[in-house]
Amino acid sequence: MSHITSDDVRKVAKLARLKLDQEEVEKYTNQLEQILGYFEHLEDVDTSNVDPTTRAVEVVNRVRTDTVKTSQFREDLLDQAPHREGDFYRVPKILSD
């Protein structure tokens, strides 16, 4: 496992679509180092023959019949949009100039 650098934090912030100022980059670099450093406790735990647990209680897939239903929520959903135009979600332009 590696030491967390401010470049790591900048890269991860970009992936997560978060913008950090210099002060935040420094703060989060220290904190990620601490949090992930704490995880290194587990390096000594032998997991070589252990299967991962993805969910606590195993469940099987349940299927239902594929029937068409009408949604009653259309207006309510559209009304939640920060910017609605008619029946559309309005967003700023996608391509830059």
């Binding site: 496992m1 992930l36 995880f39 587990l42 735990v45 997991t47 252990v50 991962p52 647990t53």
Partner: peptide, 12 residues
């Protein structure tokens, strides 16, 4: 190193 390792320790 992180997520999978954590899931394995979860099994333990």
């Amino acid at each position: 190193a992180y997520y999978k390792k954590a899931q394995k320790v979860r099994t333990l």
